[in-house]
Each structure stands twice: as C-alpha cells, then as structure tokens.
Design a protein around this nucleic acid. Structure first.
Lengths: 144, 144
DNA sequence: TACGGTAGTGAGAACGATTCTCATTATTGC
DNA sequence: GCAATAATGAGAATCGTTCTCACTACCGTA
C-alpha cells in the first residue's frame, strides 16, 4: 500500500478513513433521535419513510462498523434480531424496558470484580461477559 | 429433589403427557454425554452419525420443549446459533470456554442483589437478567 | 477545478438457523 | 388389541443477516 505523505500528522493518523456519506449521516441522525434500541430493519424502514434512499446492506455495514469502533452498542433481542443504540464508550450494561425499549445505562464495578474472580477461580483467562437487565419501566407500569 | 408440579395446570385437562419416544431418548442421551453446550445442528449430526434417524425439526421441537420445562438451558452463542445444555434448575450463570465449549455453572448472589437494586433505583419492575461469562479454559490455554 | 484511487453503495442472490405444514407413525391409557 | 392423539420428518417457508459485484461519490492532491 502506498505510504501516505502526511507530514504534520500524529503517528496514529494511519486513519482507515471512514468517509462521511449521505447515508451514514442519515443513519446517525436517526439513531440520535431515539432513546432506545433500534433494529437494522427498523432503521431502514424509518429512513426510507423519510425519503432517504438507503440500501439495507449499507445499514448493516454502517452499523457493524460503528459497533467495531465502539460508537454503538448492540444487544440480541428476544427473537433473533440484533438491536443497536448510540452509547458511551465506557464499559457499562443496560437496563432495558421490555415494553417500550427505553434504556438506561448502568455500570456495576461489583459485577466486573465478581466476574474476574469467578473466572480466575476456575482457571479461565481472557474473560469477557455479557450482562443485560430487562424489566418494565415506570411509565409502562402506569400505562399498563 | 422435590419435583415441582406446576399448580397452573387445570385439573380437568390432565397431564400434557410428553411421550417418551426413541428420538427424545436418544437426544437426552447425547446431551447427557457432553459437558458443554451443543447446538441443535450439532446434535442432529451426532445422532445421525450414530445411526439414529432423527429429523432436524424434531430436534428443535424437543429442545424447545425441554427449555420450556426447565430441563435445559440455552444461550445464544457468538453467531446466531443457539446452544443447549442439561442443567440444574436452580438459578445460575455460565462460564463458557470460547474454544472447546466446556462449561462451568456458577452462581452469584452478589450479582442478583446488584441487579435488583439497580432496577429498583430506576423504577423498573419484573426484572430479569442474562449474564454469561466467556473465556478460555485451562486445557485450551495449554493446548493453544 | 479536475483527477483518480478507493471506500462506500445497492439490488438481489445467497446463507444459515429456525419454524411451519401436513400426511404418516408410534405411544399410551384402556 | 384399539383408538385417540402426540410426535415425527421431509421439505418448503421465514427471516435476519451477509455476500457479490458493478457502479458511485468522497476527498486528498495536482
């Protein structure tokens, strides 16, 4: 690959350069506008509805790229559908409303510690974990 | 262990009677013979290999029935494949080896408490949670 | 402003896990 | 043994997601 002649750039500026396209901007805007998790199909529909012409494959690619870069979080919903949401990059978990999808980010240092300890006790290394809380939020309790 | 007879079943419609068929017996045998989680497809292959003629649909149905009755646990693996395993009925979590699938059941009272507390703080009710630990077991570390 | 390398795009095909259909078969209570 | 009916199985159908590949548009540079 031809070396980029970029003089005054920091060493880590070997930017893979994610280009800013109309489609990605629209996707981010849509994600920004919603509180809870959204599915790829759902986002696709929403954008089409707004007159944005975006291919489904593009949605999936953009979402995947953003997940990889840590810009958004993904959870596998009840079915087999993955849902996405803009997120803070710090490690955290989610408390998701089963009915309306409203989501609260929570962090649990105690859980992290417990996880490492348990794993260590059993001789496991490179430990990772998934933890999601599901419930019914106050609004839905009142409404229900 | 005291079998918990589900009090929810109406008296007039007696036992839903899950019949003991050759296929289900083979499936349970196969599950009993393995330590870690197995996928439906995997189990199907294994049984075929042994000369047991079993349909894939049957595998899925039997697995689903057993999950419903609490006889086995299921986790969605990295991909989109669900994996199953015979399990104790008490609430617990899993520490799964990413490479060989070997699984250890672990329980974390601290986590349960933390989950309820967090949920309550945010006004959520009917809270449930999923928690799985993934890592590399000692055997695989040595082998790797 | 024009140019060109290349990341990004999109329609539709491909994929893979799971579920459904429905005629056939096997289990169980009697 | 018999009848009622739960269970089975082959293949089609679903459904979310990924892949293919020719085409397009972004962006640094000339």
């Amino acid at each position: 690959m031809p070396r980029k002649t970029d003089s005054a750039s920091p060493p880590e500026q070997a930017a893979p350069a994610t280009r800013s396209t109309r489609q990605r901007r629209a996707l981010v805007a849509e994600l920004s506008a919603s509180d809870g998790f959204r599915s790829a199909q759902d986002l696709h529909h929403a954008l089409r509805q707004q007159g944005e012409s975006v291919g489904l494959a593009t949605i999936y690619r953009a979402l995947q790229a953003m997940v990889d870069s840590g810009e958004l979080d993904t959870v596998k919903a009840d079915g087999n559908e993955a849902v996405y949401r803009l997120c803070s990059q710090a490690h955290h978990h989610h408390l998701v409303c089963r009915q309306c999808g409203r989501t609260v980010e929570v962090s649990g240092p105690a859980v992290e510690r417990w996880a490492s300890k348990v794993a260590e006790e059993h001789g496991f290394t490179e430990v990772d974990h998934t933890l999601e809380l599901f419930g019914v939020c106050q609004a839905c309790q009142s409404a229900g």
